[in-house]
């Protein structure tokens, strides 16, 4: 499905707020979704662990198809140059330990 030339794919990536946007270019067809996501998380400085140290899971939503890409999929098989992916976390609110008389944390 990929329509890359010799220079590789170019796509746009955004965080879930759509306020951090990156252009990713020269992507090899063999690069996996996980490899792309890992690089973007680090580059966008998105937290990869929650406050208790548990890993935060992010999914890459391919806007053109409205589906979440699987981490093992090769980009050359699933995206087209100019596509836009959104990194969306499974992220928790709350997780307090209610205790009368104690400060919430």
């Amino acid at each position: 499905m990929g329509s890359a030339g010799t220079a590789g794919l170019t796509l746009f990536a955004a965080d879930v707020s759509q306020q951090k946007v990156r252009r990713v270019s020269n992507i090899g067809l063999e690069v996996t979704v996980r490899e792309l996501t890992d690089s973007l998380l680090a580059e966008m400085k998105l937290p990869q662990n929650d406050p208790e140290g548990r890993p935060v899971t992010y999914y890459a939503l391919l806007e053109r198809e409205g589906r979440q890409l699987q981490s093992w999929e090769k980009l050359g098989d699933v995206v087209q140059s100019g596509d836009r992916v959104v990194l969306q976390p499974n992220i928790d609110a709350g997780r307090i330990r209610p205790a009368c008389g104690g400060r919430p944390h």
């Binding site: 990156r22 990713v24 580059e43």
Partner: peptide, 17 residues
């Protein structure tokens, strides 16, 4: 140093608001 991708280039784009 900013992390390098797996051989690809990443650059900032101004978001639309």
């Amino acid at each position: 140093a900013r992390p390098n991708g797996e051989g690809f280039a990443i650059e900032d784009i101004a978001p639309a608001i």
